[in-house]
Design a protein around this nucleic acid. Structure first.
Length: 531
RNA sequence: GGCCCCGUCGUCUAGCCAGGUUAGGACACAGGCCUUUCAAGCCUGUAACACGGGUUCAAAUCCCGUCGGGGUCGCCA
């Protein structure tokens, strides 16, 4: 039998990182077994514009390379894949359930149900609906209707015995039928609810393995009941541990961003993103620009492979040492029986470490392509990127090395792209390195040396400046630090000589002049440090 | 509170099913080396079997209990 798994998001307008982990495991399992991965849209309760709310989810999955064999935009033999368009199928199922006595019309009002629930609560006994307003005959129903009551359809759950679910991850899990509620499967307006629709579709779509987060474990019995009552064989179930908040076991949620920002690592990730977003003019609406949501990573310039790799390890492992996986390797080795049972908390630092590791393997030309859109959106380079500029970007990217953790971090290096007059200077670095006695003189003489330097390559400049410093009886630090600040605006950056070479003679000399005029002109006394 | 699930370094985890490991790896953290800065890299270090009882020559591993954590209890999905 061909393996068929499904991911069934409801159109909420965003793709949650925990949802991605679930989708990924479903996808990996299907791919591992040469089966199909189906995307189904659970929009039974959506009043909003589904199309608009769905797009970010589809985009996110595609960006991550989690492709679906059947579903929205690709169709398939079981179309439509939107539950909102499958009402007749569900209604037929409800009809059959009613007919076979596995469901019943109920005319209790929500208030009456609530009263029973509270009474049970008060007596500290488990709530089970009394079925007081269950209509077993047409006459009963007519009588209730005459009272102005509206009917819903409820599941008529067994009141004895137990169910054992052989969960692929958890092993046998037992439930007492008597603990299960007579859940509503059809609303008073005739629409159906999730449990019914989900169970019916899992059968209709031929789903063999329902892989989902643990939060669904406790409602598995009623879905099994629906399936069995309809005469269908239930699929296999596998309940994944939840993805939890950083440093906690509580389910990660989009709504608690404020709380997560109190976590240092999470806050740092957020800041990394905000810094980039601001420069490219991305709207940082707190609702959607947030490391809990996949779009954040796309905006900032993460590698899909890194996210996939990290997420795969959130609840799954291959062995005691292998951590680095390509997508293909994951497909080859993934298995459900190596999935963990305990919640796994989301660790922003480790995600970043995976990103860095994957980034290291990206060839320079590809990194250049990744980085170009950021430079353009920041307005630092033109829309048309010529060969010369592309080569320069390649040199910058290469010199950046591991400092470029995500593509957007290219914007940390304006010194290579902005006009000399627009170069931003770090105040503290300027004060420490340029507004010092003697600095102006050193810069002036350095300018003379560099103007004549030939060739203007990193290698030659290094020898030249070393020799010059020695000849002038200057410590290398006295030369190198002011030079760096004068040319790049601050004291941190790539290798200095590489930086100079990339910038080129004209820019370097011009910036030395500018720095002198702006900061160091008046301080000409010899530095006391040089004594 | 009821039901269900879970419990190994701060975090992700290996080991558990088929008892015997100096309890391994990774991220993070600390120190050192390298060095013109910042990263990276290299070396070293700190750090865990929730607790209590059994069973056994021997328990992270098997059994029981306790405690702790999580999920779920809708005419949401």
């Amino acid at each position: 039998m061909t393996v068929r798994t499904r991911f069934a998001p409801s159109p909420t307008g965003y793709l949650h990182i925990g949802g991605v982990r679930t989708a990924l495991f479903c996808w990996l399992f299907a791919r591992r077994h040469g089966g199909q991965f189906i995307l189904r849209i659970d929009d039974t309760d959506q009043q909003r514009n589904v199309e608009e709310a769905l797009q970010p989810i589809l985009d996110g999955l595609r960006w991550l390379g989690i492709d679906w064999d059947e579903g929205p935009e690709v169709g398939g033999p079981h179309a439509p894949y939107f539950q909102s368009q499958r009402l007749p199928i569900y209604q037929e199922a409800v009809r059959r359930l009613l007919e076979s006595g596995h469901a019943y019309w109920d005319f209790a009002t929500p208030e009456e149900i609530q009263a029973e629930r509270e009474a049970a609560q008060a007596e500290k006994r488990p709530f089970v609906y009394s079925r007081r307003f269950m209509a077993e005959t047409e006459e009963d129903a007519a009588r209730f209707r005459a009272q102005g009551r509206q009917g819903v359809v409820r599941l008529k759950m067994p009141r004895e015995g137990k169910l054992v679910i052989n969960d692929l991850i958890r092993g046998p899990v037992e439930f007492e039928w008597s603990q299960e509620q007579d859940h509503v499967i059809q609303r008073s307006d005739g629409t159906v609810l999730y449990h019914l629709a989900s169970a019916v579709d899992d059968h209709e779509f031929g789903i063999t393995h329902v892989i989902r987060a643990e939060e669904h474990l406790s409602n598995t019995p009623r879905q099994v009941f629906i399936l069995q009552s309809l005469g269908y064989e239930p699929p296999q179930f596998a309940h994944l541990p939840v993805v939890a908040e950083p440093g906690s076991k509580v389910k990660l949620s989009k709504r608690k961003l404020d709380k997560y920002l109190k976590n240092r690592d999470f806050a740092e990730l957020m800041q990394l993103g905000q810094k980039i977003a601001e420069k490219i003019g991305h709207v940082v609406s707190s609702e959607l620009f947030n490391p809990v949501i996949v779009d954040f990573y796309k905006v900032v310039g993460f590698l899909p492979d890194a996210i996939v790799n990290y997420l795969a390890l959130l609840g799954w492992s291959l062995d005691d040492k292998t951590e680095h996986f390509t997508r293909e390797e994951l497909v080859r080795v993934f298995s459900l029986d190596r999935v963990n049972k305990a919640p796994a908390s989301f660790d922003p630092k480790k995600l970043l470490a995976f990103q860095q590791r994957h980034m290291r393997e990206v060839p320079i030309p590809q990194k250049v392509e990744m980085v170009i859109p950021y430079l353009q959106r920041a307005g630092w380079i033109p829309a048309e990127v010529g060969g010369g500029l592309r080569e320069k970007i390649a040199r910058v990217v290469e010199a950046a090395g591991d400092r470029l953790r995500v593509a957007g971090e290219i914007l940390n290096y304006p010194e290579f792209f902005v006009a000399d007059e627009d170069l931003p200077y770090d105040e503290k670095d300027v004060a420490k390195r340029l507004q010092q006695p003697g600095a102006a003189e050193i810069l002036q003489r350095l300018e003379g040396v560099l103007r004549e330097a030939e060739p203007f390559t990193a290698e030659h400049l290094e020898t030249l400046i070393h020799q010059w410093a020695e000849k002038e009886h200057l410590g290398l630090g006295q030369v190198v630090h002011p030079l760096r600040v004068a040319v790049t605006g601050r004291s941190v950056g790539f290798g200095l000589f590489e930086t100079l070479a990339i910038l080129g003679r004209d820019t370097v000399c011009r910036r030395l002049q500018l720095a002198r005029q702006k900061f160091a002109a008046s301080a000409t006394r010899p530095s006391p440090e040089s004594a």
